[in-house]
Amino acid sequence: MSTTPVNTADQPQIGTARVKRGMAEQLKGGVIMDVVNAEQAKIAEDAGAVAVMALERVPADIRKDGGVARMSDPDMIDGIISAVSIPVMAKSRIGHFVEAQVLQALGVDYIDESEVLTPADEVNHSDKWAFTTPFVCGATNLGEALRRIAEGAAMIRSKGEAGTGNVVEAVRHMRQINGDIRRLATLDENELYVAAKNLQAPYELVKEVAQLGKLPVVLFSAGGVATPADAALMMQLGAEGVFVGSGIFKSGDPAKRAAAVVKATTFFDDPKVIADVSRGLGEAMVGINCDTLPESERYANRGW
């Protein structure tokens, strides 16, 4: 269990670290799907998604269209909130704390401070402790994950390369984060100070991870998941759940593929189930080879 601050007051308290992190615990073993309208949100809910991510364009289209990608239109977010009963997440730009304030005012259940949108601040991420709405942030390694947690993130996801349909970067990030954690757990207590220096992360969080053998918040995978087998791969690599972006609604049969990814995430260690749900799904999204992406188009480099 994570060592979140204990509330000793008799009065009900909202926005505590425990209810923020606890919300993510409830999403574990589940799939969070990118949707751009109420109709897609309903398809996601019908398929068994644990939450939806409301955004104006899926990452594949953001890549295609170029330009500045921003927070979604409040009307569109409202439409999705009223269409489904499951939690609704939405993205703010990195460091754009006013977009985050707007999303909180709209009543979204989780804010993704996301590298998929164009960063608004090249130095600072948003101060996430200032919000009652919890935040999820992307990370490529343990140090980055802990810097986001220090800023108040209540959930971490791998960055991957969103919108490519190529899982290779998500695999790299998940292996990196979990490998970093395993290495930390082998260190002597005296060695944790230097480990904190090398990770560029607060010592207290480094010590907590070394003791727990895991992050103090939930860790999901994101970026490039396109098939049920991709989702199961991320779960077997230690993800506690999966975000799927363009992979569903850029495919031939979104409803069927969405349900298949949900089932493969629950039965991630059962190849027979994964084989069954992978039959007859129609076309997967085409996908992009990440090594042909110019550095300037790599989302994982955004945020630090």
């Binding site: 009900p12 909202i14 505590t16």
Partner: peptide, 15 residues
């Protein structure tokens, strides 16, 4: 009643 106490913003701790 599902989600009766409200959305995540209203999630709370109490004795």
């Amino acid at each position: 009643r599902r989600n009766a106490f409200g959305r995540q913003n209203e999630s709370f701790e109490s004795a």
